[in-house]
Computed example of a mutant assay.
Amino acid sequence: MGVFDKFSLQFRKPEGKLGRFAGFLMKKIGSEKNEWTISLLDIKPDDNILEMGFGPGVGLDMVSKVVQGGKVVGIDYSEVMLEQARKNNKKSIQEGKVELKLADVNNLPDFDQSFDKVYAVNSIMFWDNPVQTLGAVRKYMKRDGILAITVQPFTKGATEDTAKELGEDYMETLEQAGYSDIKVELKSMKPVPAVCVIGVNK
């Protein structure tokens, strides 16, 4: 396996020095995707929010600035990302607003609250069984809770059509997992547009 391939794997589960650098890149290039995804969720101050695969914690930091009376929870199975997210959300964690859990989305932990909004940004492609995971998280979501899954394809030769095709694929994934009122949003970005698939837990 070449160096580039080894580094690419760091975006699945960042570890060691390469993993810390991958986290730096995620923070640098992921802000726009996170901000867009969060805007689509229409988060309210009293909402409870769950991020699945929080990476360096960029999205959690943005959400915690909106949420006042609710709770912001994130899960990720990388200890390196947990360390970075703790640093990037130190104040909110100390205030009890943000809670981070070292956990695998393929084996969800128990939560002390039910969630109004759940989201994931560029992580679903690494899940073993997305339908199973998205179905499992529904039991922790409130009725009419909203799920948003955002992906920006980075495969070689990816285009806007690639993003649209991913949107169609993940629409089917959400439908199989039991979500309703599913819709797709597309955002023009460089080098390739991002797609967000949104569903409701009826």
Rank of each mutant, 00 (worst) to 15 (best):
S123G: 09
S31D: 12
N48S: 11
E83S: 08
G2F: 08
G157N: 10
G57A: 09
L82C: 05
G157W: 13
K6H: 11
I146W: 04
D61R: 05
D181C: 11
K142E: 15
E175I: 02
N201C: 09
A148R: 07
D104Y: 02
R20Q: 12
P56T: 01
D46F: 12
L102N: 12
V197W: 05
A163G: 11
K97E: 13
T37F: 01
I38R: 01
Y140M: 02
I124T: 10
L102F: 06
A194F: 10
E168A: 14
I38L: 11
N48T: 04
K44A: 11
N129K: 14
P191T: 08
K27P: 00
A120C: 14
V137H: 01
G19N: 05
T37W: 02
K33N: 14
V66F: 07
A22K: 04
R20G: 07
F11A: 12
C196G: 05
K28L: 10
G16H: 13
L174Y: 00
G53P: 06
G2V: 06
L50V: 02
F21G: 00
L147C: 03
K101T: 00
E185R: 02
S31E: 15
T133Q: 13
P130D: 08
G2Q: 13
K101I: 07
T173E: 10
V197F: 05
L82T: 03
E51Q: 13
R143H: 12
V118E: 04
S92P: 00
L18I: 09
S188A: 14
K139P: 00
L25I: 15
G167V: 09
K65R: 14
W127K: 04
M62I: 15
N106V: 06
D116C: 02
G30Q: 03
L82F: 11
F115L: 05
M125G: 07
D76E: 12
I43H: 07
V200E: 12
S180C: 09
L147D: 00
W127S: 07
F115G: 00
R86D: 03
R86A: 10
G55K: 00
Y77I: 04
D47V: 02
C196R: 05
